[in-house]
């Protein structure tokens, strides 16, 4: 039990996907204009990442390993994730329209979110078992959501500020992200020396 808690804590804060592993930076910069859209994206990623961690685990250990074709991991995983995103989208549209209208527009973007593929591969690399894989996928995605929502809040404030012309837009956002990353590095317990 404590192992699971440590795994969750470290996935959310210590090894935050955005600020220490650099996974999922594209949506992090792209969909962080408003806290509400950021939250939508975060929830969609959490949903997909939890399910895809479970499915890719099953496929790796039940199909790829027995057939000794582990080297096809990359191709298999990306296809699974793409198909899964489509399936989730269709399922939600048919059965949970309320959730679909909230997350719908973010779902297609998730296929090329490297956090999803990254989590699937890290699960295999770290040798997590099934429960650990699902927990890891879920809590990494929670970490991603936390990061993107905090960042969206900061960007919301930044719109009122007046940076030099060359810094407008992405550069100042990156500097702000750097400052948040510095705050997050406090969790690592590392010193800048």
């Amino acid at each position: 039990m404590t192992d699971i808690l440590i795994l969750m804590f470290s996935a959310v804060l210590i090894e935050n996907y955005v600020f220490s592993k650099f996974l999922g930076i594209c949506p992090f910069l792209g969909v962080s204009d408003k806290p509400s859209t950021a939250l939508g994206m975060g929830l969609a990623v959490t949903f997909v990442m939890t399910i895809s961690s479970a499915v890719t685990y099953g496929v790796y250990y039940l199909v790829l390993e027995p057939l000794k074709i582990e080297y096809l991991e990359t191709i298999a995983f990306i296809l699974i994730i793409a198909a899964l995103v489509q399936l989730i989208e269709m399922f939600l549209r048919k059965f949970v329209p309320a959730l679909y209208s909230a997350l719908g527009i973010y779902l297609p973007l998730i296929t090329t979110n490297c956090a999803v593929l990254g989590a699937a591969m890290l699960n295999i690399q770290e040798g997590h078992n099934f429960i650990e894989s699902v927990i890891y996928g879920f809590s990494s995605a929670v970490g991603f959501t936390l990061a993107i929502v905090i960042f969206a809040g900061v960007r919301d404030r930044m719109r009122m500020s007046n940076p030099p012309k060359a810094f407008r837009g992405i550069p100042i956002a990156l500097v702000a992200a750097g400052l948040i990353a510095m705050a997050f590095s406090g969790f690592m317990g590392i010193s800048f020396s």
Partner: peptide, 26 residues
């Protein structure tokens, strides 16, 4: 300056480089 090698340094350095490129393009 080991801050530059840390994740925070990556974001900040890239921010400054993009600002410089924007300046040139502007």
């Amino acid at each position: 300056v080991s801050m530059l090698v840390s994740p925070a340094g990556a974001f900040i350095t890239l921010g400054f480089i993009i600002a410089a490129v924007q300046k040139i393009l502007l």
